[in-house]
Design a protein around this nucleic acid. Structure first.
Lengths: 335, 335
DNA sequence: CTGAAAGCGCTTACAG
DNA sequence: CTGAAAGCGCTTACAG
């Protein structure tokens, strides 16, 4: 059963497709089309259940009204919340979102970026992976609407929105130091991406200026499985016996809590804990975990606004197109 | 800067667009195009960074290679995992996924369904909301590839995949009864959707057959905010003093744990807990929460397979197109 | 072996 | 006030 097209309606009412198109696009009065014809067309379209073929519209207008969103992993709470807010915000501007997860895999990331291009998305929202640099430069060169999130490349002049990673980690470290912890550890993932480097550098800085002097850092492999990482953390904690630990991502924090439980340490008596990113788990955990919460909604909203600005929407005004937003430091019982 | 098109390449190598199209689509030998021309075209396409315009391809072929996925809420762990698996599986069959969250709002659900239709998606994967019945019937009538997930409408003859809700709840109830609990409560949301009715009916059944006889049920409003629901649960628990409670969704379970903590009850001594759906939170909670885990990946995979079958992919074989999968009962320390 | 032409379903300048 | 025509970028039957 074929769907009805503009032409079908035109034939039924005895008008030309162009006239029907004008009417259906609300340009009837502008084109001074008779009220009578207008009503007839509207009624027929409704009765026949006419739905415009957006693919044809896109080909003709060059606009798909689709934004491409690439996140690291949609099953991760942080990225899922980000995606949700972006979806809601995009909708307000009349855009739909096509998403995918890169898994932080360069090959997959690059392929997805090209796929979005082939699909003619109007704009790109990307948490980039290493290896995407060349393709991103291409987009920038072609002046495609593009906003990076969570991380960026210093050498690529693209818009971006991220949390103030250094400031957040410093806040956490100062809190630990003020509370008198002397052996503060940092557990992160092995990664060349800037947001992780910023967090790590801030830890190193803070330690350098503290009395502790000596770093206590563990870097685990991003692609390791649950068990491997839990074991690595367990070994590290047993060997180094820190009195406080800062986990660099929510993913690590969750695995870390399992390690801590496995060893039988009591938080915060044996070990104080702060985690980057908030999560229901950290709020519900006993004791509640102190966190450096990313302002997820603000990140998403800012990114969409910058993108809409690039897309020529003049209802939005933006101050900068490279933005760092402050994290919220939420103190619970773990410190 | 305009992107290069087929025609551009044709002009550059001095061949016709059709020939270039055949070569780029790997039909060179089939069309007996000279090796020389083929190589020239391939090289030029590569050099110019040619990327086919998928919108034009879609309009011409009638296939978008996009699947539409409507979930209740992408920020909810269960639906995010579902979406993730679907995305991965769809990719293996060469499809991309366009998703959106319905928020269980009929108006939004219907609008999204129409939007997907306008976008010419090749197939639909939907966790339907009430109010979508008419539009879904239309899709079925037009023989559009469609698979419902998590819930369905008994009156609509569409394919669906869901967990065996009744079986899962019965398993949980039997476990409670065997352990000797005498005042087993059920906390669910007010909903006309079948998966919630199945869970509720199973509870009522189990109670009817038990010595308890009297139901202890709380139904909260889906759209209530966190605080309201937490308060309602708190009131309910204080007033009825159950010795065991089964939460009908992960969302409720999380809020319920907050209520329980607020009242100061000890799990399982004062109150035993089972929750529908698993979640990192339940695993990490102290004590660990016993759950009725939905086989999320199997649900997603089965749904994709049925959809691919409908799309005429003959690499997949399916047994039924209305499927119920067993839940995994994971006993932890809360019962 | 290769090219010219039609057509997917729209929108929009142009003509009357 | 309304219609005929071109064109978005492809694919594919048809012709030679």
């Amino acid at each position: 059963m074929k769907r009805v097209s503009l032409k079908d309606i035109a034939k039924m009412v005895g008008a030309s497709p162009s006239t029907v198109s004008f009417i259906l696009n609300g340009k009837a009065s502008q084109m001074r089309i008779s009220e009578e014809l207008k009503n007839k067309v509207m009624a027929t379209a409704k009765k026949m259940g006419y739905q415009p073929n957006q693919v044809a519209v896109s080909l003709r207008t060059g606009q798909t009204k689709i934004l491409g969103l690439l996140v690291e992993d949609i099953a991760n709470n942080f990225f899922a919340s980000l995606a949700k807010t972006i979806e809601v915000e995009a909708e307000e501007f009349g855009y739909k979102v096509l998403y995918s997860s890169t898994e932080n895999n360069s090959k997959k990331g690059v392929e997805l970026l090209r796929l979005l291009t082939q699909r003619q998305v109007d704009g790109y929202l990307v948490t980039p992976t290493l290896g995407m640099e060349e393709d991103l430069e291409m987009l920038v060169k072609h002046k495609k609407p593009l906003v990076l999130m969570d991380r960026y490349f210093p050498d690529i002049d693209a818009a971006y929105v991220q949390v103030d990673n250094a400031g957040a980690v410093l806040t956490g470290m100062e809190h630990f130091i003020k509370k008198g912890y002397k052996k503060i550890a940092f557990i992160t993932i092995e990664s060349g991406l800037i947001q992780m480097r910023q967090r790590e550098d801030a830890y190193v800085d803070a330690i350098g200026k503290s009395e502790q002097k000596k770093k206590l850092m563990l870097k685990v492999n991003y692609n390791g499985d649950r068990e491997t990482i839990i074991n690595q953390i367990t070994e590290f904690l047993k060997k180094n016996k820190p009195d406080a630990v800062l986990f660099a991502t929510n993913y690590l924090g969750i695995l870390g809590l399992e390690s801590i439980r496995g060893i039988g340490l009591t938080i915060p008596r044996d070990l104080a804990v702060i985690c980057f990113d908030d999560n229901d788990i950290f709020r519900l955990h006993l004791p509640g975990i102190t966190v450096l919460q990313q302002p997820v909604e603000a990140i998403a909203r800012t990114a969409i606004h910058i993108l809409m600005h690039q897309l020529g929407n003049n209802k939005v005004t933006i101050k900068k197109n490279q933005v760092q937003l402050a994290a919220n430091f939420i103190v619970r019982e773990s410190t």
